[in-house]
Amino acid sequence: MRFAARVEVRLRPGIADPEGATIERALPALGFEGVHDVRAGRSFRFEVDAADEQEARRRAGEIAHRLLANPVIEDSVLELEPAGPGEPD
């Protein structure tokens, strides 16, 4: 089976986020008042072949933990769903 994975990587609480802070400071200049706690992060999408959802979750989680995020500074959140029929490869 093929599963579509989305991994969101974000800085852990307490780690300074200069990108988020810069965006937050810029918003009032654009007329957006009252916006708080802006945090910048990254999102990754990929598809993974696995026998079942449990295996897909385990493999995608390992990818997130070992490569996509640096656990010293970042947390990751994994979302998984069965992929639609893709192009034959």
Binding site: L11, I15, A16, P18, N70, V72
Partner: peptide, 17 residues
């Protein structure tokens, strides 16, 4: 070396970008 776990901690974007 930090990414490889041979040294502790991490290096992130400079203050003020």
């Amino acid at each position: 070396l930090t990414e490889a776990g041979l040294l502790p901690g991490a290096l992130v974007k400079n203050r003020g970008l």
